[in-house]
């Protein structure tokens, strides 16, 4: 464990909590892509199956359980509790365009052709594109509430910190997980455009981030 990975995990946790609290307190999920949240719940469900097969550390177990619980709670709030505020007209990204290539690729590119490894690889590739429906929804509505942008900021920060973590582990431990790194870099690139808008619009106190 290193400070970059720990900060990344904390940033990830903060992002998930920001979103969950926003929905819970505003009793609304307007502007939130339910599809992205379902994809994230799927990412955790397929990646954390090793909870039942290997014990890495208490931290590892606790964080996995927390991520699973919070992501399912978020999906529950969107599609059950506050479903009447769910903006289905704008949450129209075709997730099959993400799932088919990701499934195909995880069968082609993996470390071992075993169910657990293929599911892990699937979760890595899926996480890289899971935010697309949310980013698509923001471009479609042309704006994002500031809290949603903070959620996206911390999500992007988590990915940027993980890249720092991989640089650190490569130099300190000679560790290099090619699938995770390649997919993680692609995922982080998707946030770059958002980061620019976040800094130039949200942090300048505009409150909402409205796209040009």
């Amino acid at each position: 464990m290193n400070i970059f990975r720990l900060a990344g995990d904390v940033s990830h946790l903060v992002a998930i909590i920001i979103l969950l609290l926003k929905i819970w307190r505003s009793k609304s999920c307007a502007g939130i892509s339910g599809k992205s949240q379902v994809l994230f719940a799927l990412v955790f469900s397929t990646r954390y199956l090793d909870l039942f097969t290997v014990f890495v550390s208490v931290y590892n177990v606790v964080m996995k359980v927390v991520f699973l619980a919070l992501s399912y709670a978020t999906v529950y709030l969107i599609y059950m509790r506050f479903r009447n505020s769910y903006d289905s007209e704008n949450d129209t990204f075709r997730v099959e365009f993400l799932l088919v290539p990701v499934i195909g690729l995880s069968f082609l590119e993996n470390y071992a052709f075993t169910p657990l490894e293929i599911l892990w690889t699937f979760s890595i590739f899926l996480e890289a594109v899971a935010i697309m429906p949310q980013l698509f929804m923001i471009t479609k509505t042309g704006e994002a509430e500031s809290i949603t942008t903070h959620y996206l900021f911390f999500l992007g920060l988590y990915r940027a910190l993980y890249i720092a973590n991989w640089v650190w582990r490569y130099h300190m431990e000679g560790f290099f997980d090619q699938i995770a790194v390649v997919s993680g870099v692609v995922q982080t690139i998707f946030y770059c455009d958002f980061f620019y808008l976040y800094v130039t619009r949200v942090l300048r106190g505009k409150g909402k981030m409205s796209l040009p």
């Binding site: 990975r5 995990d9 990830h12 990646r47 090793d50 290997v54 890495v56 550390s57 590892n60 964080m63 996995k64 991520f67 470390y111 071992a112 490894e117 892990w120 993980y162 973590n165 997980d177 090619q178 699938i179 995770a180």
Partner: peptide, 10 residues
Amino acid sequence: ADEAAGHDEL
């Protein structure tokens, strides 16, 4: 590859 021996990152 050693990665297959269990992934320690979240």
